[in-house]
Structures are given as structure tokens and as C-alpha cells.
């Protein structure tokens, strides 16, 4: 059976908020390394991979591998009943029909209990190769969100170019064009505001802004986001959590 308790319901709320517009139904795979999910969007252009490691939970007990097939809209409805700082316990039998969620408020001894029906989801897992990326850029997640939103007002696509000096996001649309460049800067006092570029070689790729805007819903998970780029491979966007991550992979557009 599975029994996993999060100190803060907010963690799962944020994870679900981050991915629910990309993926409708998916398996939460529970095993001795924690709870993981991997799913593609309907158009197979983007892939999300999430891992909440066992450290994220206290206690964490999972006797055998369990796949919890969950409709994310349903899960979100139930999670709305939890306060951000409620204790959240997930429980399931070994071959479960339902996932049991218990929200406990430390302040007023309130205990809320919900069961959510599970579904059989036949989902294939993709092997994601270890990649040495041409460029890895760490930047404030709020800044990335703002850039994607601003450029999406002008265009469907964005070119991302990483070089030694900085990272440049540019787009061209019917009403005109736009470009935002972030120069490499190391903010010693506020490290989360830094833009750090690790470069093996300069790289430029084009991506659909619709998906990037969608990924930015994960911004509340982390103050920083890490973009990893290489020619001819999907862009990796990672939001790190205290004991886990949400990663998005986005297939590039082919040039002219």
C-alpha cells in the first residue's frame, strides 16, 4: 500500500496547477523512489516529467509499485478543499480503485477526507537520454514568465539564442517584432535574481510560445528556472523543488 504525507498541501497543489493545462489524465507512479509522472500533451509536442522524492514526504511508505491513474481536473477540484499549509496524506491500496486524500489543519483540529476515483491509463514511458547541452541558462522564473507572456502578444514563435554574453529571446509577428536580452549577471546578495549562463557552444532554436507560456504556470514552484538548449533536441525547462522537480521538454520548430 501507499501512504505518503506532505507537510504542505501547497506542494501538490502547485504541481497540479503547473501541469493540468498540458495533460488531462496521467499516471502517478509510486515506488520506492517517490512519486513520479511522465506524460505528453495531446499533440505530442511537449512532455512533462515530475518527481517528488521520498524526502518530500514524512512518512513515505510504498510496498510495491502502484500506478495511480488520475484525471488532473478531478484532483484539482479535491485539492481546492485543502489549505496551503494543511498536512496532506495520500493513501492507496496495492490495486486501488480510489486514492484517499486527508487534509489536516494543525491549527483547529479539522480533518477532511476525500476519495478520488482512479482510472486505467495505458501510458507508454519514453526514455529521455542524458544530454550534454550546448547551453544551460538559470534565470528568475518570474522573468522567464514575463518574457514569454510579452512576446506571445506579438507572435506564435520565439527564437532563443544563448551566447557567452547573454540569452536573447526574439520574435516576429504581424504587428512588428520584439526582443529581450538578459545579460549574464551574478547577483551575490540575491542569487535568485541572477542570470547564469553555462556555455559549451552558442546555440539558437525556435519554439512555440503557446507551450512556453503554459510551462510558466510552474513558476510558483521555484524562484528560478533552468533552460537547457542544444541544436536539434527538445528544450529542457526545469523547475526545482526542495525534494524533486517538474521538467518540461519542448520539441523545436524546424527552420525555414
Amino acid at each position: 500500500m501507499l501512504e505518503a504525507r506532505l507537510e504542505q498541501a501547497a506542494v501538490l497543489k502547485k504541481v497540479v496547477d503547473a501541469i493540468k493545462d498540458l495533460v488531462q489524465d496521467c499516471n502517478f507512479d509510486c515506488n520506492d523512489s517517490g512519486i513520479q509522472l511522465q506524460a505528453m500533451d495531446n499533440s505530442h509536442v511537449a512532455l512533462v516529467a515530475m518527481h517528488l522524492k521520498t524526502d518530500a514526504f514524512s512518512p513515505y511508505r510504498c510496498d510495491r509499485n502502484i500506478a495511480l491513474g488520475i484525471n488532473l481536473a478531478s484532483l484539482q477540484k479535491v485539492l481546492r478543499a485543502a489549505q496551503n499549509d494543511d498536512l496532506l496524506t495520500l493513501k492507496a491500496e496495492d490495486a486501488p480503485d480510489v486514492l484517499n486524500l486527508v487534509f489536516e489543519s494543525a491549527e483547529n483540529d479539522r480533518i477532511a477526507e476525500y476519495d478520488i476515483k482512479l482510472m486505467d491509463i495505458d501510458q507508454e514511458h519514453l526514455g529521455i537520454p542524458d544530454t550534454e547541452y550546448a547551453a544551460t541558462v538559470t534565470m528568475p522564473s518570474s522573468e522567464f514568465q514575463r518574457i514569454c507572456r510579452d512576446l506571445n502578444a506579438l507572435s506564435e514563435s520565439v527564437s532563443i539564442e544563448a551566447a557567452k554574453e547573454g540569452i536573447k529571446f526574439s520574435c516576429q509577428g504581424d504587428i512588428g517584432s520584439g526582443a529581450v536580452t538578459l545579460r549574464q549577471n551574478n547577483n551575490v546578495e540575491k542569487p535568485d535574481l541572477s542570470t547564469i549562463i553555462e556555455l559549451n557552444e552558442p546555440v539558437g532554436l525556435t519554439f512555440s510560445l503557446k507551450y512556453l507560456v503554459n510551462f510558466c504556470k510552474a513558476s510558483s514552484l521555484s524562484n528560478t528556472v533552468k533552460l537547457s538548449l542544444s541544436a536539434e533536441v527538445p528544450l529542457l525547462i526545469e523547475y526545482k523543488m526542495e525534494s524533486g522537480y517538474v521538467r518540461f521538454y519542448l520539441a523545436p520548430k524546424i527552420g525555414d
Binding site: M40, V45, A46, L126, S157, P234, A251
Partner: peptide
Amino acid sequence: AKGQRTISSFFAPK
């Protein structure tokens, strides 16, 4: 025109 690639053309099923 720019074409959109898919994830499946990069990552193979396990």
C-alpha cells in the same frame, strides 16, 4: 514556414 517537431521523434518508448 516553420514546422513543429514532435517529442516522439526525439525520445523513444522505453
